[in-house]
Amino acid sequence: MTATVEKPDSETVELERGRPVDHAELARRADWIRLRTIDLIDQAGLGHYSSTFSCAEIFSVLYYHSLRLRPGQPDWADRDRFLLGKGHVATGLWPVYADLGYYPADWLETFGQIGSPLNDHPNMRLAPGVDFSSGSLGHNLSVGLGMSLAGRLTGRDYRTFVLTGDGEIQEGQVWEAIMAAGHYRLGGGLVAIVDANGFSGHGPTSDAINIESVADRFTAFGWQAVEVDGHDVAALCATFDALPPVGEGRPVCVVARTRKGKGLAMMEESPQSWHLGHLTPEQRDRARAEIEARMR
């Protein structure tokens, strides 16, 4: 992969919000995330492919266009925060953080081994770039609410983004957080992105317990909700570019309509089969070829 996105080279290099980047490049970056996810899972022996693939464009747009960051200074107080509510897709973020300079690329070689700072679910104590640990579904929207309230209290204008799975919003705590965030009117200071890929670990999300209409439910709790094609990088850029100011009005829910397993035909056809799994060497090579062909 020959990246053309800018990389930081010192502590103070700042990646501004809405930085200019070619949409085709962001789409290629999403496929690069898929490729690297395949590599890391291959190395580890097991992983969450299809859930990661559904949010690859969201990762690409946030980290290469929308978030205000200083990768050389991971604890910079004014950075935008990104919390991975659906922590099982951290594999897709590890190559991004390495690429942006949060840690050396050779850390990726430790993935899957005891002692690695890069776990299957992210740990803020171990991996620079991780704004909060996750793994237990349903917690991170509450955590993001706390971060956003702290930002408002201390007069900072950072945004806190929380990516939740659509199955994750079946957790009761999520609705406690949604209710409180609506009450506190955090505006563009708190952005929930629902990766609405329609599937949980064992089948269609709404076959288990219906979650629709996600947008109407958030709206009823005091949020503003917008539906977007979660694989359309231009639409995602426009959505994040148009976020309201921090700290005023309704917080924002972005319902990203996605496909679980997006980008690989075999996983799009059978998404729940690839929620957790391991490609055989033949499957892996075919998968890489399919993605690389699209990137050329």
């Binding site: 991170n140 509450s142 706390g146 705590q173 406690e176």
Partner: peptide, 14 residues
């Protein structure tokens, strides 16, 4: 539950 997780977020923000 929301209270405790939100407190964690506040603590992480200083």
């Amino acid at each position: 539950t929301n209270t405790i997780s939100a407190a964690a977020g506040m603590a992480a923000a200083g």
